[in-house]
Nucleic acid binder design. Structure first.
Lengths: 256, 256
DNA sequence: AAATAGCTTTGATTCAGATCAATTAAACAG
DNA sequence: CTGTTTAATTGATCTGAATCAAAGCTATTT
């Protein structure tokens, strides 16, 4: 079994509504979330239960963490939608990622023990705090947990390389297609429709992430709609022809 | 002390010629390289000695690993200079990084256990192979090693975010300035001159990394030279005014 | 329900960088 | 040393995206 499903599910469908019925103490539910899919035994689950300490709610627009503050914990997203962004001295900010249920935030801060980005909720969200020192301790005892944690970090690196490719060599329309397909895939993995979803972020935030201006993003949306590949109604997106959307992306494989 | 100095030295000056006198068995020398700076005890060094198995030489133009092949080991660069690049279906390739002595390659492959990029030597190079399974085992026994390994992975994520920022929001000249300053800093950290060095890569490879065409890279070099900020003689670069080069970069901090 | 503020779209214009093209310079093999 | 290949520079032109500008639309507040 793969712990995959939980800390940062990517492969298997997993509706985040599923977890709503496991609503005992925070430790218990997070623990279940974290461990059940890995095939850990009861004792191991017990151990891990102590790691995932408390749960935090962040309102839309609220900060999970700020750049420059001390790093102590990773955060597993239980529900909601967040963006991470680095901010430049002049005040402008660049979005480095959008994050949804099951994903793990804070990996960048391990190196210096200072957060290198802001994490901001784009809708009301809930996260589990995972004290990093404890996670390290426990991963010594549970090898499969350590292994999985390493894979998660590595996957983040691969994802970033994908974005670098996108930013370095794709045109506006290709970038947007890639972005939409990426979202689509992640919604699907969580049990939602892959062809019908609502964007949580503004055109400006999409543009920031894709290295484009908001007007360009808007025009790219319109273009894809004109071609009947997607239907855009403000934040509501329908993918009418996913195959052609994939074509739009060029030959480049979909960014993780 | 920081293991930092070794696996991926960034902070402290460390001339890679220094290690030339430690030339016993591969295990021993790599082991010294890996451990001495971390302040591990003799027993721990002994343990780690078994991990870093054998040394490999790669000729200029040779591959350290290919995309799609099975991942088994990380590689610590002992000497030389390599690039990593992902290749698209249509044959074009994008450089995702340039790597020098002390840096660790292969982190991206941990997630799927398949290499996601090619690693190609830009000059004759030497690497130490570190079987990943063994590294994981041993890091359970030596917490400071595990901690350091996590920091290395995290640092790679931060570096990638820096490149994303560069690709997403900087102009050609700013990108080149940022690139040169990054190289400069890394040479300095290895005991070389920060203002006088030879590029190991072509304009095309720089362009690929920076999301620019080779002509644009060439023009940006010329521009910086016209302004007397640098002196370019083919692959040989002299930084005449590092302060002004930093200004060129805009307010953006230097990409790690 | 009206008012305000925040998004989004669309058009017109400008500009940075891509592309096309020609030359020069360096590296390499025979 | 000479011919050949590969890399780098520089110029001219073209183009995709940025910028500037003006509506139109949503959502939130009162």
């Amino acid at each position: 079994m793969h712990l995959d499903k939980i800390l940062s599910l990517e492969t298997s469908p997993h509706n985040h509504l599923d977890i709503s019925h496991i609503k005992s103490s925070c430790a218990t539910c997070s623990l279940r979330e974290l461990c059940l899919p890995v095939g850990l035994n009861e004792q191991e689950i017990q151990i891990l239960g102590d790691v995932v300490s408390h749960k935090r709610k962040i309102q839309r627009g609220g900060y999970l963490h700020h750049t420059g503050t001390k790093f102590q914990s990773l955060f597993a997203i239980r529900s909601g939608f967040l963006k991470t962004c680095v901010l430049e001295e002049d005040g402008r900010q660049q979005v480095t990622g959008f994050h949804m249920t099951g994903e793990l935030l804070g990996l960048d801060a391990i190196s210096t023990e200072i957060h290198t980005c802001d994490a901001i909720a784009l809708e009301d969200s809930e996260v589990c705090e995972i004290p990093f020192l404890k996670l390290e301790e426990i991963s010594r005892v549970i090898p499969s947990l350590m292994r999985h944690f390493h894979k998660i970090m590595s996957r983040e690196i691969v994802r970033d390389h994908g974005v670098m490719l996108l930013l370095g060599s794709m045109k506006a329309e290709e970038r947007l297609a890639s972005f939409l397909l990426n979202l689509s895939r992640r919604f699907l993995a969580r049990g939602y429709s892959e062809c019908d979803f609502n964007l949580r972020m503004t055109r400006e935030e999409i543009g920031s992430y894709l290295g484009l201006k908001l007007e360009t993003v808007s025009r790219a949306f319109s273009k894809l709609q004109e071609e009947n590949i997607i239907t855009v109604d403000n934040k509501h997106i329908q993918i009418n022809d996913i195959a052609r959307l994939r074509m739009k992306m060029g030959n480049t494989s979909c960014v993780t």
